[in-house]
Every structure is written in structure tokens, then in C-alpha cells.
Nucleic acid binder design. Structure first.
Lengths: 104, 104
DNA sequence: TATATTTGATACCAATTGGTTTCATAAGCG
DNA sequence: CGCTTATGAAACCAATTGGTATCAAATATA
């Protein structure tokens, strides 16, 4: 039950939910309408997303609007940072030159 | 069995393997030495990573060196792009000003 | 107040996952 | 050639996953 953000975005439906509510907060029913799956299934996805603090519920009467915690998404960005360094230097001007020289 | 990159990075061991071979290509045995798990378990992770083209095997005698396909990592970066737009504009100068004004 | 709506929680199920054990294959070495 | 080493593959297993069906609670509405 140890949930992390990488496990959360592994499921395509959850990724779609994230994208959906990134634009505007939505209720579980409204979200479920966008998918083939049931409301209950969506509700379970929402719980998982909430567990790792990717989304936040905002009660409004009997409806609950789920908002994306955009800041949490940065954790993925931070993990990517180490690789971004590699792919940026890998094709730097100097490297390109060396590759060119090697081929000659 | 249709694997995608998000499913691949969901497992912490696989993320560690990716980080490990990002620095330099390694053999399954060498990789397994870095973890508590067995060589066979690592082998299964490598197969999954290879299936979604995140790593590439390079046979060298009876050893196989696995190399990270750094370009593939960009797919995660591309998916993040949509959110990066949000978190960059969310705290832009104008927004900060509006928030400040609102609080007063 | 009685009924409908919105939602979460639980029990259950089939499929998938990550792991181990065991075996097969291929390459190096005495 | 036999033996060791490096590796993948297959069979099996317990735990987890994503789904459905059903129920309970809370809020709106007639």
C-alpha cells in the first residue's frame, strides 16, 4: 500500500484523470463521464491519486471537486533532472564535433 | 502485456536500474550486485525495460551490456510538458501580483 | 419528512506483478 | 572435450491491481 507518484501515473486512466482535472477541478461523476469505466472505478483511482497527494478534494455541498496539486507533479520533473543533464550534454556542440571527427 | 514507459518506471527497482546504467552500461550480474534481489529478478526487470525500448542490450562475448536509451526518457518529459506550462504560468509575475492584491 | 443524488467503503473476482526455483543455452577456460 | 560462467526462459506462487456489485452516509429537493 506504499503509494508513490510513479505508481500513480502508471495507470493510463489515472494519467487521463490528471490531465482532465489539470484544466479545471471536477467531481467524480463528471470525471467518470469521460471514461468507459464505472464511477466506482474512477472513485478508486481518485483515492489512489489523493493518497499520494496528487489531487485534493474540495467539498461543495454534496459534491466534491477534485483539484490537481500541480506542485506534486514537479517530483517527476525532479527525477528526470538527472537524465536531462545527460541528454543535454550528450548532444552538445563538442560531442557532435567529436562524433563527426570519429566518423571521418 | 502491452508495456509503456510509465508502467516501466513505476517500479522502484527498475528506476534504480535506469539510474545505474545511465552512468555506464552494465551486465545483468553487475546490476544485480547493487540490489537485494536475485539476478533472475533483475533479468525480468531488464526484459520489461527492453520491451518498452528504454534499454538496449549489447552482446560482448558471453556478457551482455545494457545501455540506457536516453532518448526514450524524453517521452516522460514530453508528457510533463502540459503540466510544466501550468506550473510556470500559475506562479508568473502577474499571478503573484493578483494573489497579493487579493490578500490585501 | 420521504425521496433522489453524490459519494466513499467494502467484499469479492480475475488478471497482473514481482519474486523464487529450476532448467537450457551459449561462451570462455582448464 | 568437460567444467565454469553469464544469461534468458519457464513454471510456479503470494501479493497487488483494477474492476464490479452492493451498501452506507450525507446532502439536496419535492
Amino acid at each position: 500500500m506504499r503509494r508513490d507518484i510513479f505508481q500513480a501515473i502508471a495507470d493510463p486512466t489515472r494519467r487521463a484523470i490528471i490531465t482532465l482535472i489539470a484544466i479545471q477541478a471536477m467531481t467524480p461523476n463528471a470525471i467518470a463521464e469521460h471514461f468507459d469505466t464505472s464511477r466506482q472505478a474512477v472513485s478508486k483511482h481518485l483515492r489512489i491519486l489523493q493518497e499520494c497527494e496528487l489531487i485534493r478534494p474540495e467539498q461543495q455541498g454534496r459534491e466534491i471537486y477534485y483539484t490537481l496539486e500541480i506542485e506534486k507533479m514537479k517530483e517527476i520533473d525532479q527525477w528526470l533532472e538527472q537524465f536531462r543533464k545527460i541528454w543535454e550534454t550528450k548532444f552538445s556542440q563538442l560531442d557532435k564535433l567529436l562524433v563527426t571527427l570519429k566518423k571521418q
